[in-house]
C-alpha cells in the first residue's frame, strides 16, 4: 500500500466515522445519558484515528478479542452461561482439530480415518493442546482402494469386521508423524484399525 492510499483510506474512515457520529448524535436521547454516550463515542474516534498506525507497527491487536477478554471478568459472574459458552467453544474446537487431523492423515498417507476421538488440556499453560488422541483407521477401505483397477477373484466369505486390540507396530511411524505435528507425546496416541478379517 502506497502512502497516498494509506492516507486516503485513513481520511475516508475518519469522514465516514463523523457521518456515523452525526447520525448517532441525532438518534441519541437528550438528557443526562448523552454525556455517557459521548464518552464511548470519544473512544471510537481515538480508536479509528490510531488504528492504521497499529496495523503499520505489526502489533497483534484485535479490538473484539481484547474487549471479550476484558469483559470476561464481568461475565464470570454469570457462571452458568459462561460455562455453557465455553463448552460449546470447546466442542467446536475439538471438531475442527479432528477434521484437520483427518484431512492431514488422508492426504499424506494411504489410510482412511473412520473415527477420531480426542481430548484437550484444560490447564492454563497448555490450554487447547491435545491431551489424548485416538484414531480408528478403516483398513478395509484401504484394501479396496489399493485393489482398484485389478480384477480379483476371491472366494465368497462371510465378512466379519473386527477391531484390533491396542496399537500395532506398523502404526509407529504414523504415530511419530502425528506426535510431531500436533506436539503430543506418542504414549497419548492410540491408533487402532477396523478392517476385514484375513
Amino acid at each position: 500500500m502506497t502512502l497516498a492510499e494509506f492516507i486516503s483510506s485513513w481520511v475516508k474512515d475518519i469522514v465516514l466515522l463523523f457521518v456515523i457520529i452525526t447520525l448517532v448524535d441525532l438518534v441519541m436521547p437528550k438528557g443526562s445519558m448523552r454525556r455517557y454516550i459521548n464518552f464511548v463515542v470519544g473512544f471510537l474516534i481515538i480508536f479509528t484515528v490510531i488504528n492504521p498506525f497499529v496495523n503499520l507497527t505489526n502489533i497483534d491487536f484485535k479490538l473484539d478479542r481484547e474487549v471479550f477478554k476484558n469483559s470476561q471478568v464481568f461475565y464470570d459472574l454469570d457462571e452458568g452461561l459462561f460455562r455453557q459458552q465455553e463448552e460449546q467453544i470447546e466442542e467446536l474446537y475439538k471438531d475442527k482439530v479432528a477434521v484437520e487431523i483427518r484431512s492431514f492423515l488422508e492426504d499424506s498417507t494411504d489410510y482412511r480415518v473412520a473415527e477420531i476421538h480426542l481430548d484437550i488440556n484444560r490447564d492454563e499453560d497448555n490450554y487447547g493442546s491435545l491431551a489424548y488422541l485416538s484414531i480408528l483407521i478403516d483398513e478395509g477401505d484401504k484394501d479396496a482402494r489399493e485393489g482398484q483397477g485389478e480384477i480379483k477373484i476371491s472366494p465368497v466369505v462371510l465378512e466379519e469386521y473386527r477391531r484390533w486390540e491396542g496399537s500395532r507396530d506398523e502404526f509407529l511411524d504414523l504415530k511419530e508423524v502425528v506426535a510431531e505435528r500436533y506436539k503430543i507425546h506418542m504414549d497419548l496416541i492410540d491408533i487402532s484399525t477396523i478392517g476385514l478379517e484375513d
Binding site: F47, I50, L63, E66, V67
Partner: peptide, 10 residues
Amino acid sequence: IPILLSLMDL
C-alpha cells in the same frame, strides 16, 4: 469499561 481497557492496552 472493556473498550476503555482495550484502548488503554493498545
